[in-house]
């Protein structure tokens, strides 16, 4: 088991290096800077448990969405012991660091979390909800929203309930906008069929403008109650709220751009949510502040080019 885990860990490291190499020099340096910045900023006293929780959340996300169950079952290694070993190997520098710095809370969060995550070795199948709500008032060409809201309306309701219950806490309003932004951007992850794009009869630029317009309009519609309530109840936080809203709007436009920049019928944009997550919190980290605007400018052009290629192919 140890041999298999070490071997597969080496293969994962090689793959990761290839992915970084495929990013290109500029993006690889940028990514490295972000990682170093994140690492250093969480090295301060009391921040190590947060760092451990962040690493754990990355591993948990990768573990629960993995698709190698059949491959590992065919090798008889789809077992908790295998995952405990491989994740311990991958996170060993951090575990050793926490022991060295005598931060046992961080060590326990990471080590204990890894063991708990490793226990889930079967595919995670979310139960299908029986209550399906349709949204016929949403324009038909906002198909992502019609489909997305059908699956995720309960998250929006839950967020509003939390906001109403704890309306005295200002940070919850800003937090809810970020949640809504993540949810709405997530709708753009899956690529529709080409016939749906062609059916609108628009050229690439008109299509892109229409999709961004719909994304911004519908996003504003779902965040409006939280935004207005916050401005009335907590006027002292209006500047910060404005920053969050502006940043989220840029993220929404970026979500549409990145989708169509890499559009391939029936596929989904890989790593989209990781980038979106990073951009969503950009307003809070000075070094990242101009990032959404910068990324939007790059990907808008790429989306237009890709749509031109696809539409005139």
């Amino acid at each position: 088991m140890l041999r298999a885990a070490s071997f597969i860990a080496i293969i994962h490291i090689r793959r990761t290096l290839r992915i970084v190499a495929a990013l290109g020099l500029f993006r690889a340096i940028f990514l490295l800077m972000l990682i170093i910045f994140g690492f250093i900023s969480t090295l301060r006293p009391g921040m190590l448990p947060l760092q451990a929780a962040l690493i754990l959340s990355l591993i948990a996300q990768a573990h629960l969405t993995r698709k190698d169950h059949n491959l590992l079952t065919s090798l008889s290694i789809n077992k908790p012991a295998f995952f405990i070993i491989i994740y311990s190997l991958i996170t060993s520098p951090f575990l050793l660091l926490y022991l060295f710095l005598r931060d046992f809370n961080a060590f326990l969060i990471l080590a204990g979390g890894l063991v708990l995550v490793a226990l889930f070795n079967k595919p995670v199948n979310f139960r299908k909800r029986k209550l399906h709500i349709s949204f016929p008032f949403i324009p038909a060409d906002a198909w992502e929203w019609r489909a997305g809201l059908k699956n995720i309306w309960w998250v929006l309701i839950l967020t509003w309930v939390v906001l109403v219950s704890f309306h005295r806490h200002y940070f919850l309003f800003a937090g809810s906008i970020i949640v809504f932004s993540l949810v709405a951007a997530g709708f753009q992850m899956y690529h529709e069929s080409l016939s749906m794009i062609r059916a609108l009869g628009l050229n690439s630029r008109q299509f892109l403008i229409r999709k961004i317009y719909l994304q911004l309009l519908l996003f504003l519609a779902i965040v409006a109650p939280a935004m207005i309530s916050s401005m009335i109840i907590h006027p002292e936080g209006n500047t910060a709220m404005l920053m969050v809203i502006l940043n989220s709007l840029l993220v929404q436009a970026f979500a549409v751009s990145i989708k169509y920049a890499g559009y391939r019928q029936g596929q989904h944009t890989q790593y989209q949510m990781s980038v979106i997550f990073l951009l969503n919190i950009a307003f809070a980290i000075p070094v990242l502040l101009p990032l959404p605007l910068f990324m939007l400018a790059i990907y808008l052009r790429r989306a237009d080019l890709q749509l031109k290629t696809v539409l005139y192919a």
């Binding site: 041999r3 298999a4 071997f7 597969i8 293969i11 994962h12 090689r14 793959r15 290839r18 992915i19 495929a22 698709k67 190698d68 059949n70 491959l71 079952t73 065919s74 090798l75 008889s76 890989q270």
Partner: peptide, 29 residues
């Protein structure tokens, strides 16, 4: 399950893995 191996309709491969690396995983057993 140790007696059985299955090929799915759409086989899964780790992104950015080479064919040789994929087969070497099976050589572990």
């Amino acid at each position: 399950p140790d007696k059985c191996a299955m090929m799915e309709t759409t086989p899964f491969f780790y992104p950015m893995i080479s064919g040789k690396e994929y087969l070497e995983i099976f050589r572990l057993k």
